[in-house]
């Protein structure tokens, strides 16, 4: 999944990706069907029960993913062209920073619930800006602190939504 020979997003998915996605979708649908089978019926003649709609949707998804996968496996002109056509010369899309970004965001979210919005956001912003090429040790922290404070104040006073202080600090106040 982490490997893609193709160029920038939107240039068309590679055959392997379509097949993989089709299989993932089918697995999700089968799992949904498996879970839905245990849903109770409402016991009324005038109701189809909670399982009916998920079952219909999941059934159609299996058909659609089959069409997708079979469409890419059949020796059609499109597939051959695609196969013959070598991967577009790398447009320079790199997965490493995306993966780092996703993990950093996940850690950031986890830490917000722990030590609160303010410190984590400043660090997160500085880190992400550096990841993306803002190397200045003056401008970057200043921007990070500014954005963090601005959002905090807007949410607290403008929208009456206090951003989280973190469970550790809530405990410390006691």
């Amino acid at each position: 999944m982490s490997h893609s020979p193709e160029g920038a997003p939107g240039a068309g998915a590679p055959r392997s990706a379509d097949i993989a996605a089709g299989i993932i979708v089918a697995v999700v649908a089968v799992a949904a069907i498996a879970v839905s089978r245990d849903f109770p019926t409402t016991g009324l003649d005038s109701d189809v029960g909670p399982a009916r709609f998920p079952l219909i949707y999941a059934g159609i998804l299996i058909v659609l993913s089959a069409i997708l996968v079979i469409g890419r496996l059949l020796p059609t002109r499109r597939n051959q062209e695609r196969a013959a056509e070598p991967a577009q010369p790398g447009t320079g899309f790199r997965f490493a920073p995306v993966a780092i970004g996703v993990v950093a965001t996940a850690v950031y979210i986890y830490l917000i619930s722990l030590i609160g919005y303010l410190p984590t956001t400043v660090v997160f912003l500085i880190g992400m800006m550096r990841l993306m090429g803002q190397r200045s040790w003056v401008r970057t922290p200043l921007l990070a602190v500014g954005i963090t404070a601005f959002l905090y104040l807007i949410f607290l006073y403008g929208l009456q939504i206090p951003l989280p202080v973190g469970s550790l600090f809530e405990a410390a106040e006691l």
């Binding site: 917000i112 956001t121 997160f124 800006m129 993306m132 963090t148 959002l151 949410f155």
Partner: peptide
């Protein structure tokens, strides 16, 4: 610059989803 915009958007996503 995208190097500022992207981190800002990610932060906005987080606080927006929280709110």
């Amino acid at each position: 610059p995208r190097s500022i915009l992207t981190p800002l958007i990610l932060t906005l996503c987080v606080v927006g989803a929280y709110a």
